[in-house]
Write a protein that binds this DNA or RNA. Structure first.
Length: 222
DNA sequence: CACCAGGCAAGTA
DNA sequence: TACTTGCATGGT
């Protein structure tokens, strides 16, 4: 039976862990991507896929001069699918990219800045109505492309909470997101860096076993 | 060879 | 609501 940290200490505890991770690993400079559109496309292509494969697909889009809304809007879905082939699930992902591109083209005049001007929870609601955009993808877009303060929850986040006895990973997505956002300052930079550090921790430590002796947070573990 | 990766939606009970 | 399955390439 796991036991979790007392909630009255949670705010300081999370900040301490964040500072420890930042000091150990340094800034992660997320999201890798030159433009808002590139971040949005990367968020869709990386669904259950390693980032390495996504990078190849993004490079391929650039080689085809297709890294812009109008080109992607006009392109056949089948053509788009072949260009992003290396990212896997390329048929369904070509549909998903088309879906969000169509919304940006038709509702926001191909102008992603207009999305930035919408209230954070309203733009989240709109993104979640798009077939192929779930909570993690929507929140990644909002945080990393639209530069708005929202906490992204993924499988690494849940393992992190479990490994450090902070909160039950059995809670649903929105509940875990609220846990972070209630216990941290509402700061875009903090949410950006924290999520990236949690992913870095998960990808480089504690892969198979929950606790390895190389983990910089070991002194924080029970 | 098996297994996994920065998820999501649709189908089933 | 809770659980299962399809989607698919590329690295280890």
């Amino acid at each position: 039976m796991l036991h979790y940290s007392p909630m009255e200490n949670m705010q300081q505890r999370l900040l301490d862990i964040f500072n420890m991770l930042l000091e150990s690993f340094g800034k992660r400079n997320w999201w890798p991507g030159e433009t808002e559109l590139e971040i949005i496309i990367g968020a869709v292509l990386t669904q259950n896929t390693s980032w390495k494969n996504v990078e190849k697909a993004i490079d391929n889009l650039k080689r085809h001069n297709a890294m812009d809304i109008d080109s992607l809007f006009k392109m056949d879905r089948e053509t788009l699918a072949l260009i992003i082939k290396s990212s896997g699930f390329y048929n369904i992902k070509s549909i998903r990219l088309k879906n969000i591109i169509n919304v940006i083209y038709n509702e926001y005049s191909s102008n992603i800045i207009k999305l930035k001007n919408i209230y954070i929870w309203d733009v989240r609601e709109r993104l979640l109505k798009i077939n192929g955009i779930g909570k993690e993808t929507a929140d990644s877009i909002i945080l990393y492309a639209l530069d708005k303060p929202i906490f992204v929850v993924d499988v690494y986040t849940k393992r992190f909470l479990r490994n450090h006895r902070l909160y039950s990973e059995e809670n649903d997505y929105d509940t875990i997101q609220r846990f972070f956002m209630k216990n941290l300052p509402n700061d875009t930079y903090l949410f950006n860096e924290f999520h990236a550090l949690i992913v870095y921790l998960g990808q480089n430590f504690c892969k198979k076993v929950p606790f390895c002796n190389k983990c910089p947070l070991n002194k924080d573990l029970i």
